[in-house]
Amino acid sequence: MSAPVQTSRWKAIVLRHETALLAVVVIEWLCFNAIGPRFGSLDNTFDILRHSVEIGLLALVMTPVILTGGIDLSVGSLLGLCAILFGKLWRDAGLSPLTAGGCTLVIGALAGGLNAGLITGLRLPPLIVTLGTYSLFRGLAEAITRGADTFTNFPASFLFLGQERWLGLPTQAWLFGAVAAGVWLLVHRTTFGRSFRAIGFSPEGARYAGLPVQRRLTLVYVLAGVIAALAAVIYTARLGQAKADAATGYELFAITAVVLGGTSIFGGVGTVHGTLLGVAAIAVLNNGLVHARQPREVAGMLTGALLLLALSGSVAPKLWAAWRARSRPSPPPTPSSTTS
């Protein structure tokens, strides 16, 4: 009795989206390792890690947003705005980087609260609301700097966060790991994550079950804002400067990583570890192509192709099953249906 259960469980794990994605990451790694001589080095591995932290953070918090059936297009712009405000708070208000960072997180929360308020209070679709704040936040960043002001000359103690190692790993990797663990627990081990999925599958069903739908939606958008602000601080520390056009287009990379990781854009289905694998697949691809001396455009093309392939791949088994069912001869009529 236990044997068939065991095989089906193994089959389920092998056929899982995350497993296929892990294989893609490994294959990417092996290919680039064979092509580029320096690709597999520890330095380069840390480089990949450093470069993927900001997009990774955005993808992590985008996962619960998409699980509820929503979307947040404003995170990239918010990252830019927060980077500018962080620079302002440090340079012009004279705050220490730590205090300025704390204030930036609060600003991120407020910005996320604005999204949440418009979505839950006015019941506007998340796509439209965050499309609006996408322009609003970036516009604010550009207005504050008049498109020219940049913030540089940060103290070394701050740059340590983005450019040095701590306990053997890039400093920001520790923060990333902590956020990843937190979001994973939130989504997979708490009633919050359960509610996100219920809302994503059926907002009305969740309401009829007495779940606090508005509060849960508020949580995911505020969380997205806070983590976008954290990503802004790390981004500034990695590059050593803050400009209004920081992280342009990051929201789309984040969404790509989430969807590549197996989260359904319609909500309800998805995992945080899938998202992490999605981030890894994109990061390794981008870095590897640099080492393989391919132009940047190729990375965009291949990322797009990978995403479409993954999406088709997840639909293919269903289509195959449907085709099999149709081509099979129809079963003989059951006795009960021939009574008339």
Partner: peptide
Amino acid sequence: HGVVLEMPIAENMTMAVHRRMFPGAWL
């Protein structure tokens, strides 16, 4: 409204008792 069709029976049955069943929100 009555059942979230995509979710397992167990998750459907506990959906209205999250607070009592899962103190501290841990499943």
